[in-house]
């Protein structure tokens, strides 16, 4: 093990982030059902340990690209949650002023290059961000989150090859939750472990338990160190699970109740909570207090977003170009 265990403060911070993601997603699901969120939303609940375990190693100078299931990555990378709630509702106070919505939340200042509606599109973009870092020699890295489905797209293969030959400081994080929409990875992916595809590009391919914060955290630390020191890219496959369907409203007939409850029993937040209490790093009371605080803050965000104004209709025509 090259990365030592995080200290208490960092662990409590990671716990808080994971609770924030879960609370955000539970509320997003509920408010979508209540008609407050237009369009569609893809919830990240269940996969929190991946986003937080990876982003714990990043600063605002490092960039990430994300997916249609991007809320968790945004929160883990430090995007303003208050603004994210407003963005889900399409309000003018949203982080993208209501022009992006759930699938396009971004904040370049926070190193967040956007959730993305196109499966597999983020991998080349992360190569580009890594190219900037490499040319500038500033030590920054980039991370591309994507799913098992994206590993079948051409961009996955092109990006891994390009990053490998240019030794780009990029970490490819495949969140294998077992299903691309309603199609199991066991059917759609030619290999049992997507990490094995790294061998084709002669880069490290590592499998981690995506439901375990420490497993992700440790592998990510090594990969980020490798990238920062100029040794090139790493592919991390995090075996994980989404607690909700592909999108809100998914009937989820392709999964059994038994399977879902098996994974819910391994809830990553419960796992981290147990670890903190068992190792005397926090009491249940302290963690309950964090949960309460997160809940209250998020409730305020929803109230504020409901009260916030819609964008002015003229805004529909702005931000297409810097100048035209």
């Amino acid at each position: 093990m090259t990365t030592s265990l995080p200290d208490r403060e960092r662990l409590l911070d990671a716990y808080t982030r994971m609770v924030e993601i879960r609370t955000f997603e539970d509320a997003a699901g509920k408010n979508f059902a209540d008609g407050l969120v237009p369009g569609f939303v893809h919830l990240y609940a269940g996969e929190e340990a991946v986003a937080v375990g990876i982003c714990s190693h990043l600063t605002d100078d490092d960039f990430i690209t994300s997916t249609h299931r991007g809320h968790g990555h945004c929160i883990a990378k430090g995007v303003d949650i208050h603004g994210m709630v407003a963005e889900l509702m399409g309000k003018s106070t949203g982080v993208c002023h209501g022009k992006g919505g759930s699938m396009h939340i971004a904040d370049v200042d926070k190193g967040m290059l956007g959730a993305n509606g196109i499966v597999g599109a983020g991998l080349p973009l992360a190569c580009g961000a890594a190219l900037t870092a490499k040319i500038r020699g500033n030590g920054a890295v980039s991370v591309s989150f994507f799913g098992d489905g994206a590993s079948n797209q051409g961009t996955f293969h092109e990006a891994l090859n390009l990053a490998a030959i240019w030794k780009l400081p990029v970490i490819f994080v495949c969140e294998n939750n077992g299903y691309a929409e309603a199609t199991p990875a066991s059917y759609a992916v030619s290999v049992g472990d997507i990490a094995n595809r790294a061998a084709a590009y002669d880069i490290p391919g590592i499998i981690v338990d995506g439901l375990d914060f420490f497993s992700v955290y440790e592998a990510a630390g090594a990969a980020v160190d490798r990238a920062r020191s100029g040794q090139g890219p790493t592919l991390i496959e995090a075996k994980t699970y989404r607690f909700y369907g592909h999108f809100q409203g998914d009937t989820i007939t392709y999964r059994t109740d038994e399977e879902v409850s098996r994974y819910r029993d391994r809830d990553p937040i419960t796992g981290l909570r147990t670890f903190l209490v068992d190792h005397d790093l926090a009491t249940s009371g302290e963690l309950d207090a964090i949960d309460k605080k997160v809940n209250e803050a998020l409730a305020r965000s929803w109230d504020d977003a409901k009260a916030a104004p819609w964008p002015a209709v003229e805004d529909a025509l702005t931000n297409v170009y810097v100048s035209y």
């Binding site: 993208c96 022009k99 396009h104 971004a106 904040d107 956007g114 931000n319 170009y321």
Partner: peptide, 9 residues
């Protein structure tokens, strides 16, 4: 991206 990000990129 500029449009989707509300002018922030």
């Amino acid at each position: 991206l500029r449009y989707m990000f509300g002018g922030k990129a």
